[in-house]
């Protein structure tokens, strides 16, 4: 493809470059702009008079004595207790990823090593479950959760997120395990291992690339979820995304929209780092399901 591209006529080359620059601006500029604006006061970031105010921040300088201010961050993290939401998100993500990978690898491994027809039907069922919008299940959770006092706790939400995550995890790990040759654990079994020992000593050491990729997507699901977390968590246990949504309700009226801006930047930053370090795994994960099918 490289040789091919060298032969492009100059006009096409120029229009491709323009298009790429255009796309990069669309994709990245909103985030850069919000990051920049989060250090201004509202009168500058949302300026009625002149959009240039957001760049040069005359009001911020006038009020705070400098072109940058951390007031939004202070307001969000300290005044509105955003740090609590950060801890909650960390806990939820950690346990969701851990649990769904543990039970997902067991299940996905079993699906890839069994040759009976029911594995196919189990995968189809998982596919059907994967298609269900999570919000449609919430009405079914609320009644029993209220009855048994399970509503509002982090642990309940973790379990629900793990379950909702399972269909996707199973499909992904199933396709990864199928790439690991069956002869590997067959020979371990010939040497006298049980199925579990074969899994433990032969498969676990070689399965990490697939597990890491799947883990990234489990993490994203837990980190980004709004439908489940906003419905199942009490005020104190809220994770970052529903917390931001509740900022919108309360602080916009008080003129504290900059709190929400700062919180949004704080939430996006870890994702930014994640894409930076795991770009290859994310791309391979996105294409794994597609290229196989």
């Amino acid at each position: 493809m490289i040789n091919h591209s060298l032969k492009l006529p100059i006009s096409l080359k120029v229009s491709i470059s323009i298009f790429i620059v255009f796309w990069l601006i669309i994709a990245a500029f909103p985030f850069i702009w919000t990051l920049w604006g989060s250090f201004k006061i509202e009168a500058d970031f949302f300026s009625k008079a002149d959009w240039m105010n957001a760049l040069f921040a005359p009001r911020t300088i006038a009020e705070k004595g400098g072109a940058f201010t951390g007031d939004g961050y202070y307001g969000a993290w300290v005044q509105e207790n955003f740090w609590q939401a950060v801890i909650n998100t960390t806990l939820v993500c950690f346990f969701v990823v851990g649990t769904s990978l543990t039970i997902g690898t067991l299940g996905g491994y079993a699906l890839s090593r069994s040759s009976y027809k029911y594995t196919f039907w189990l995968l189809i069922t998982a596919l059907i479950f994967r298609a269900m919008p999570p919000i449609t299940l919430v009405a079914g959770y609320l009644l029993p959760f209220y009855e048994w006092n399970l509503w509002g706790h982090l642990a309940t939400t973790v379990i629900v997120l793990v379950a909702i995550n399972q269909p996707f995890t199973l499909w992904m790990l199933h396709s990864f395990f199928q790439k690991i040759p069956k002869e590997l654990d067959e020979s371990a079994k010939v040497d006298g291992c049980t199925q579990f020992q074969a899994f433990r000593h032969v498969i676990i050491p070689v399965m990490w690339p697939g597990v890491i990729t799947t883990g990234l997507f489990s993490f994203l699901l837990a980190y980004n979820d709004f439908a489940i977390t906003s419905m199942l968590l009490s005020q104190n246990n809220q994770t970052m995304v529903p917390k931001i949504a509740s900022f919108m309700g309360t602080t916009q009226t008080e003129g504290n929209v900059m709190f929400a801006v700062a919180a949004v930047v704080s939430t996006t930053a870890p994702l930014f780092l994640m894409v930076m370090f795991f770009q290859r795994q994310i791309v391979s994960g996105l294409t794994a399901g597609a290229v196989k099918g």
Binding site: T102, I103, L106, G107, S114, Y116, G140, V160, A163, Q195
Partner: peptide, 27 residues
């Protein structure tokens, strides 16, 4: 893989999906 081994490997994920996806749909 034998049915029995398969069952034990698959049990945790199956029960999670049954309890928190299949049952709520029914509910």
């Amino acid at each position: 893989m034998k049915h029995k081994t398969f069952f034990w490997f698959f049990l945790p994920t199956a029960s999670a999906m049954l309890l928190f996806i299949a049952l709520p749909i029914f509910s």
